[in-house]
Structures are given as structure tokens and as C-alpha cells.
């Protein structure tokens, strides 16, 4: 029999392969050359230093939003509200970034911290409602997403600017951007944020696997009643899980606010960083290391796809379909397990 651990590694790999194969089939159906398509995708992500810089830039917020979803899932909570928490973190970091005049050693950490706090607060509300009133966190977080979207638009327009569509740029002292990294990658938008992201992945691993709090969070995720019987405070752990999850999401917003863009603008819709985080977390099996790998894969797909129309004539949106299918395959892991076991039986 296959061990569970092996299954947990095999399912994501098979899902990605199935997703890519489906993408190839779609390309064949519409008369494109799949090999040329995937080659364009590969070159678009790794072709030269600029593309690679952009890929890392894209991976950075994905790691953090993936960690946010994964952390909540470990405690049995599905945080669809990462998107809204990203917005709150983004606006908070830019707010601090443009309104203070401080030395960098204070200003940058303060702006990043503000993002984490704002995201955490946006996670706290659904966490509290879930813990105290038993309200399903999925619906509340969806609603919180829209509130965050409209609220941040209103803040940009009325508080941080005089009716303009975007804020001014954050001060040098609060920026994650780096001339050195930019020059090295032919002026891509890569920034120091990836260090924060990797650090946070380590923080998540440490909290989950090496602290009592992490043990309690996981325990609540497995069985709330047993945890309560064992003397754990289930309500406190639910709120805590959402707060930490929201903080990670807020940091993802700070990556965009202080790194990629350096400002906040009026948004007509969502950035999808948060929704893609769900895919990242699922594919990464909710572990810190898995999230880094999955975020890297999605970053490569998203940035590489931009090269597909010019190099192979394939519409960029093909990658959205591939990502959606990968989520389906991971979610339907029951089917993959069943097929593997069936093959195993036949082979005997």
C-alpha cells in the first residue's frame, strides 16, 4: 500500500501534469503547437534576467497569500478573504509610506508592520464571528473582500489624494524597491520583498511545527470537540488562526504597495492575489515549503503566459484555464488516489 505521505506528494505532481496536459490538448484543438506554446511559456519566465526578475516579483505575493490560506486551512478554516486582507495591507503600507518622514530603519519596518496589522484586523472580524456566533467564515470573508475593495478605493480618492486615481509614491525610506536588483535584471520590478516572503514561510513552519500554539491550532483543525475536551480554548484558537492568516495576507499587500508599485490606485476589481493564494495553498498541501514551490510554479505560469501571444500566438488566458484545472484535480484528489490504487491492484 502507498503511504499517506507518498500520496500527499504524488497528488500535487499528478495534478500539475494533468493540468499541463489539458493545456496541451486545448492548444492542439485550437490549432496551436503545444511544444511551441510551452517553450514560449518557459522563455517568458526564464528567458533572460528581466523575465526572471518579473517571475520572482510575481512569486513574492503568491508565497504570502498562499501562506495565509494554508495557515487558516491548518486550523480547519477556509479564508477566502485573503483578497480583502491584501487590499487592507496594501492601503495601510502605502498610507504609512507616504505620510511619515522617518529614517529607513524605522519607516520600512513600520510600514510593513502596519500592513500586517491591517490584514490581521480584517481577518479578526470573520474569526471573531466564527468563534463567538458560529457564522460560516467563507461567506463573511467574501463579503469582507468587497467591503475592503470599496473602502480602499474611497480612501485613495478621499483621504490619500485629492480625488485622484492613485496615491503619490511612497517615500524612499519605506520602499522595498532596489536599484541594484533592478539593474541586475534589466529594470524588472523585482524588489527585496522576496526576503520577507521566505522569512515568513519559515515563521509559519516554526509556529505550526515547533510551538504549543501551532499544536493547538492544528488540533482544532483536526477535531474541535476533542480539542475542547482536552482543555484547549477553541474560540481563541479560531480567532488567532484568522488573525495570523490575515497578517500574512496583509504582508502580501505590502509587497505590492511598497515593492512592485510603490503606490495604491483605484481598483475596478480584485487583484486575484488572494484567490490565486487558494490555489497555491492547495497545491502546496498547506505546508510552508510546499507553498513556496507552488507559488513559484504559479508565478512562472502567470509571467510566462505573457510571452505566449507574441512568441506562439496562444492567448494568455490559456494559463487561467490550466490553473483552474489544476485546482480541480487537486481538489478531486479522491479520484487520483482511487486511480493510483486501481493501477496498483491491476499490477499485482
Amino acid at each position: 500500500m502507498f503511504s499517506n505521505r507518498l500520496f500527499n506528494i504524488l497528488v500535487p505532481i499528478i495534478s500539475v501534469l494533468l493540468g499541463l496536459i489539458s493545456g496541451a490538448i486545448i492548444m492542439l484543438i485550437f490549432g496551436y503547437n503545444p511544444i511551441a506554446g510551452f517553450a514560449a511559456l518557459w522563455n517568458g519566465a526564464f528567458g533572460d534576467a528581466y523575465f526572471f526578475g518579473e517571475t520572482i516579483r510575481q512569486v513574492t505575493p503568491y508565497i504570502l497569500s498562499g501562506l495565509a490560506v494554508a495557515f487558516a486551512l491548518r486550523s480547519g478554516l477556509l479564508n477566502i478573504g485573503v483578497e480583502g486582507q491584501v487590499f487592507m495591507g496594501w492601503i495601510a503600507s502605502v498610507w504609512i509610506g507616504i505620510s511619515f518622514d522617518l529614517p529607513m530603519i524605522v519607516h520600512l519596518p513600520l510600514a510593513i508592520l502596519a500592513a500586517a496589522v491591517a490584514g490581521a484586523f480584517w481577518g479578526f472580524i470573520p474569526g471573531l464571528l466564527k468563534a463567538k456566533l458560529g457564522v460560516h467564515e467563507v461567506i463573511v470573508t467574501i463579503m469582507m473582500n468587497y467591503i475592503a475593495l470599496y473602502l480602499s478605493n474611497s480612501i485613495v480618492r478621499n483621504l490619500l489624494s485629492d480625488g485622484a486615481d492613485r496615491t503619490e509614491k511612497v517615500a524612499e525610506t519605506a520602499s522595498l524597491q532596489s536599484n541594484w536588483l533592478a539593474e541586475m535584471t534589466f529594470y524588472s520590478r523585482i524588489h527585496y520583498g522576496f526576503i520577507v516572503a521566505i522569512l515568513m514561510a519559515f515563521v509559519m513552519w516554526f509556529i505550526i511545527n515547533r510551538t504549543t500554539t501551532g499544536f493547538e491550532l492544528r488540533s482544532v483543525g483536526f477535531n474541535q470537540h476533542a480539542s475542547k475536551y482536552a482543555g484547549m480554548n477553541v474560540s481563541k484558537n479560531i480567532v488567532l488562526a484568522m488573525v495570523i492568516s490575515g497578517a500574512f495576507a496583509g504582508l502580501a499587500g505590502a509587497m505590492e504597495g511598497l515593492g512592485t508599485f510603490g503606490f495604491m490606485s483605484i481598483k475596478a476589481g480584485f487583484t486575484n492575489i488572494g484567490f490565486d493564494g487558494i490555489a497555491v495553498a492547495l497545491l502546496g498541501a498547506n505546508t510552508a515549503f510546499g507553498v513556496i514551490l507552488a507559488a513559484f510554479l504559479f508565478g512562472v505560469l502567470k509571467i510566462g503566459a505573457l510571452n505566449m501571444p507574441t512568441a506562439a500566438g496562444v492567448p494568455t488566458e490559456l494559463v487561467e484555464i490550466i490553473i483552474a484545472l489544476i485546482i480541480f484535480f487537486v481538489a478531486s484528489s479522491y479520484m487520483i488516489r482511487w486511480v493510483i490504487l486501481w493501477f496498483k491492484k491491476e499490477g499485482k
Binding site: 477556509l78 487561467e320 484555464i321 483552474a324 485546482i327 480541480f328 481538489a331 484528489s333
Partner: peptide
């Protein structure tokens, strides 16, 4: 396939937009 219904729904949203725009 007993997939998580919320996750499958999220995938539906991605898939529809992807197919439509593609």
C-alpha cells in the same frame, strides 16, 4: 469525486473566466 465544494466552486469561477476570455 467528493472534492471540497468551496474549492471546486472557486475553480469554477477561474475556469469560466479563463474559457470565456480565451
Amino acid at each position: 469525486f467528493r472534492a471540497d465544494q468551496v474549492v471546486s466552486g472557486v475553480a469554477i469561477n477561474f475556469l469560466a473566466l479563463g474559457i470565456g476570455l480565451f
